[in-house]
Design a binder for these strands. Structure first.
Lengths: 149, 149
DNA sequence: TCCATATAGATGCGATTGCATTCATATAGC
DNA sequence: GCTATATGAATGCAATCGCATCTATATGGA
């Protein structure tokens, strides 16, 4: 298959830049003695539901994570005291996950480092127009392509 | 730290789109019974040096991979018969890695699947202008930021 | 009611990752 | 030549990933 130069260039840039930035963020978190980035999204998503909590299968659907990954990440969060698994009224198979005080604090601590990294790596480099243009171009890549009916 | 909306949007799009596309490519490779994407870059880079081969530390520098990762990936490639490690004339500490016939074939097989995925996921979605604009915006994120002298 | 199937979630196991360390050879300074 | 340090590369070990499977409860149909 013949792939045009500009496509390869865009793909390469996309993969390498996202990797580099992610590594930089993870590095900042590690230096600050904080857990890896994936914890943040989960803490945030769980926190959104407040006292009601969230079902693990909902969490995995929202964050597009594999089921086994979600299950084990929750175990680690639980072990760290950041979340609580409570039996689920109405469905004996599953449970509900709620953020603890420790979890809320951890989310705040992570955001301090995370947001600073975001500003340094993206915020001060792209102005509003550029950021929006980037978002727009990237969103095109998510659209399902026209089928060949 | 206060991060503007457009920065968060661009960052989120960058991370989620690159992840989604990478997963799609990896999935195609797996379905075709081929190894993971990281093998391709290494096979390509080694192949570039032809019979002369390449030193592992050069390989890691070019692909920005951790040393331990490179070492073990090469072991796996060797086990698969795709590369050969040869003693290095002039430096007894290291060696030189050369692509085998099997390795060259594997690279071709992977490219067939990889390139098709690239076209489907990127090639037919962004025209030349859009691809170039995307590359340009992403490249800004690589530039070292102005220091505050 | 009873069975077949579907869904929520956990887990065994082998492979991979990441950190730190180790081993071996090179190189510099004396 | 000899020691101290630097560099190339491998590896021990604990943690994590990915796949497939397993357990338990729910749900639909005969």
């Amino acid at each position: 298959m013949d792939v045009p130069e500009h496509t390869i260039a865009a793909w390469t840039a996309l993969v390498s830049v996202s990797r580099r930035l992610l590594e930089a963020v993870e590095n900042d978190l590690r230096i600050a003695g904080l857990p890896e980035l994936s914890w943040y999204d989960v803490l945030l998503e769980i926190g959104r539901e407040g006292e009601a909590g969230i079902r693990p299968f909902d969490l995995k659907d929202r964050l597009l994570l594999p089921q086994y990954y979600t299950s084990r990440l929750l175990s680690r969060l639980e072990k760290a005291g950041a979340v609580e698994r409570r039996p689920c009224a109405g469905d004996g198979r599953g449970h509900v996950v709620v953020l603890t005080k420790i979890g809320r604090q951890l989310r705040r601590d992570m955001w301090e480092v995370y947001s600073a990294a975001l500003m340094r790596l993206v915020g001060i480099k792209l102005n509003a127009n550029e950021s929006e243009k980037l978002s727009e171009l990237l969103s095109i890549l998510c659209e399902p392509h026209a089928s060949m009916v």
